[in-house]
């Protein structure tokens, strides 16, 4: 199903909350998305960066997966 702006805002809030004591992580995530927007990095590049940034946070990774196009997915380490 199609995600809306509200879903994106909600996800950003989730990231901000989880890293409340590490605001740099949230800022890094915003930077990754800005680089994608400016086409400095492509979808696999985003996946690579986000999987490193959110390592150890499976809920954030699974949430991020919902924004990826078909055929793309970050594997969660269990």
């Amino acid at each position: 199903q199609r995600l809306k702006v509200e879903d994106a805002l909600s996800y950003l809030d989730q990231v901000k909350l989880q890293f409340g004591n590490q605001p740099q992580v949230y800022n890094d995530f915003l930077d990754i998305m800005k680089e994608f927007k400016s086409q400095s990095i492509d979808t696999p590049g985003v996946i690579n960066r986000v999987s490193q940034l959110f390592k150890g946070h499976p809920d954030l990774i699974m949430g991020f997966n919902t924004f990826l196009p078909p055929g793309y997915k970050i594997e969660v380490q269990t």
Partner: peptide
């Protein structure tokens, strides 16, 4: 665009970053 939902997330992130 190949990843419309990711573009949407990026747009929202850019606006959020600009506002903060």
């Amino acid at each position: 665009l190949p990843a419309p939902q990711l573009v949407m997330l990026a747009n929202v992130a850019a606006v959020t970053a600009a506002e903060s």
